[in-house]
Design a protein around this nucleic acid. Structure first.
Length: 579
RNA sequence: CGGGGUGUAGCGCAGUUUGGUAGCGCAACUGGUUUGGGACCAGUGGGCCGCGGGUUCAAAUCCUGCCACCCCGACCA
């Protein structure tokens, strides 16, 4: 491709819509353009990279026996009514009506459509297992699109669905996808970790998130250098503090004026925050949105509550619980803002963190203004309706597997895999006949890769950009080699550049030829900005049959003969293009 | 959805306080000189000043309603 003929434009200045390096570089390099908030268009150079990522995904999916299909972005509401998700999905779903007023949505995902597709055609155990996938636009009306393609409202997603006879088959499919995803992200040049994740709204019984580590990520993960621990912070288990072995002391009420926070009361009484019990009050709602019950959660004063764990313990949906105004709840439950404790509460479900029963002689609110109890003990002074781990695993806390201090990292979720069980097949009637002619529900898995998010996440890796621009890994670079011709029209240079272009192209190398009538500085800056891995400069050495060879990732430049440069290019491209 | 901010040429911005009919840099176009790390000179084109309503002889500027976009948070995977 000759750059002079390409629809191509770079920006010298930073567009004010962009905040983080990867988004700035995508815009400056002319790879994408914004069409509306969270909605982007891909320009030729950017689209080439997207297609390369898709190709890597296709190769890895096909290698695991998955077959590609394509479904419409428009999905009828009936299918979602069947699974129960038309009501459950909420405002994130783009809903549209056809001319007769029939409701449709722009697909945010496609469990229902795929289940519908297979349910009529799968009837025998002989047809299983089966895996189908697609790479299509997905739509989610995000409350707050952000960071370019990291959180957008319209994005490209590879989604696939596995259909198996039983849980064992489901596990096999799941492991295949785990492997495929690991290969995909390695080939794309991402630094990532597969981490255990919560199943969330999708449901099911097991999940991993593939998180690309980067500073601006929205996911927080906990991991351990000494063992295999890697989990989202929501999912990570927490080790209970060791149980106290001391004797229970007599309960005592203390006057603690104005000490509404844990910090205040621990300072006032001169005790450590880890000897206090913190109360958090909530109101939950049923599926119709009516108030259901009051919930009081208790946790050690220096811990942080993990909402996901609380929601799972209560068996409710995440958006059916809100923080409560404790003072307003006084009449109903006896709690008192800032002084609520586990004693004297009524008409209120009490959830106690799993380590509290082992901790002796704690300090807790007395449900009375300006008073706390000391020497509060589980069993003797209070009990809970549910006892479960409610803690957020914090950096430096002991690892739940090996006990060493855990680390935290931020990252972007580029893929997630789920075991769905029969969550969709049962309500939607996706069944097969087993060897004994008995009808059985199909066991499903679903697996997603955010293609457009991966596209940006690659750039966000520190190794894939610098002050001058993008540094694409060979596997996803829009072109492998850029020929920077210093003076187009110069006979010797024209001849050398043409020869390199022809020979590399013939060898299967993708070449961008900068033949623009620009000053050399402009061409060098643009070549660095768009991040082509290999640059061959054809300039004043052309009459001697020599060129300059430089890798984007490395600082040094080498003078080479034309033949040497061609060979070096072919070698490195063949070595690295698979990723 | 709550808080904050911004909308002026393709991009980055000034002008708004104190109303007087729009400007700078980059980019584009023409001509010339240049040519190995974002050149220089001369010239040219390009604006519903986010949109609507109001005040005024006169509005980018003042008042008012709306919209869009960005950031923080809530929410979401």
């Amino acid at each position: 491709m000759k750059l002079s003929k390409s629809f191509f434009k770079t920006l010298r200045e930073v567009p004010n819509e962009a905040e983080i390096p990867s988004h700035i570089l995508l815009l400056r390099a002319g790879m994408i353009k914004k069409t509306a908030a969270g909605i982007y268009s891909y320009m030729p150079m950017g689209w080439r990279t997207v297609r390369k990522i898709e190709q890597i995904v296709r190769e890895e999916m096909d290698a695991q026996g998955a077959q590609e299909i394509a479904t419409s972005v428009l999905q009828p509401s009936e299918l979602w009514e069947e699974s129960g998700r038309w009501a459950a999905y909420g405002p994130e779903m783009w809903r549209v009506n056809d001319r007769n007023g029939r409701p449709f949505c722009l697909g945010p995902t496609a469990e229902e459509v795929f289940t519908d597709i297979i349910r009529n055609d799968i009837s025998s155990h002989r047809q299983l297992p089966l895996m189908l996938y697609q790479i299509t636009d997905k739509f989610r009306d995000e409350a707050r699109p952000r960071y370019g393609m990291m959180r957008s409202r319209n994005f490209i997603m590879k989604d696939n669905y596995s259909f198996d006879k039983d849980p064992e088959g489901q596990d096999v499919s799941y492991r295949k996808m785990y492997e495929a995803y690991t290969n995909v992200f390695n080939r794309c040049g991402l630094t990532f970790r597969p981490v255990e994740a919560d199943n969330g709204a999708i449901g099911g019984t097991g999940s991993h998130e593939f998180t690309a580590l980067c500073e601006f990520g929205e996911s927080e993960i906990a991991y351990c250098d000494s063992c295999d621990l890697a989990a989202t912070v929501e999912k990570a288990e927490c080790v209970d503090a060791p149980a106290d072995t001391c004797e229970m002391l007599p309960l005592e009420k203390k006057l603690t004026p104005g000490t509404k926070t844990i910090e205040d009361v621990s300072n006032f009484l001169g005790i450590d925050q880890s000897k206090t019990i913190k109360a958090l009050l909530f109101i939950t709602y049923d599926e119709e949105g009516n108030e259901k019950e009051y919930v009081a959660a208790f946790i050690r004063g220096d811990r942080e509550l993990n909402m996901t764990k609380l929601v799972n313990a209560l068996g409710i949906r995440e958006f059916d619980i809100v923080f409560a105004d404790e003072d307003a709840m006084h009449e109903a439950t006896g709690c008192v803002g800032g002084f609520t404790g586990p004693m004297h509460l009524h008409d209120c479900k009490i959830v106690v963190d799993s380590e509290l029963p082992g901790l002796k002689n704690m300090c807790a609110g007395a449900c009375e203004v300006d008073h706390h109890y000391i020497n509060v003990n589980y069993g003797r002074d209070y009990t809970g309706d549910i006892i479960t781990d409610l803690k957020t695993l914090k950096e430096g806390d002991p690892c739940p597997i090996c006990g060493k201090p855990v680390k935290h990292a931020r990252g972007v979720e580029v893929g997630q895999i789920f075991k769905l069980g029969t969550k969709y097949s049962v309500p939607m009637g996706a069944v097969y006949k087993d060897e004994n002619q008995k009808e059985q529900p199909i066991w499903m898995g679903c697996y997603g890769i955010g293609i457009s998010r991966t596209f940006q996440a690659i750039i966000d890796m520190p190794r894939n950009h610098d002050d001058f621009g993008i540094i694409w890994p060979m596997s996803v670079a829009p072109y492998h080699v850029i020929i920077t011709q210093v003076k187009p029209g110069d006979a010797a240079q024209d001849e050398v550049a043409q020869k390199i272009y022809d020979e590399l192209t013939a060898a299967g190398v993708e070449v961008l030829w900068d033949d623009r009538d620009e000053r050399p500085g402009v061409k060098f800056k643009d070549a660095d900005l768009i991040g082509i891995p290999v640059r061959i400069t054809v300039g004043k050495l052309a009459p001697e049959g020599k060129v300059e060879y430089k890798l984007r990732r490395e600082a040094d430049r080498q003078e080479m003969t034309v033949e040497e440069a061609i060979k070096a290019s072919i070698d490195i491209v063949n070595r690295e293009k698979r990723g």
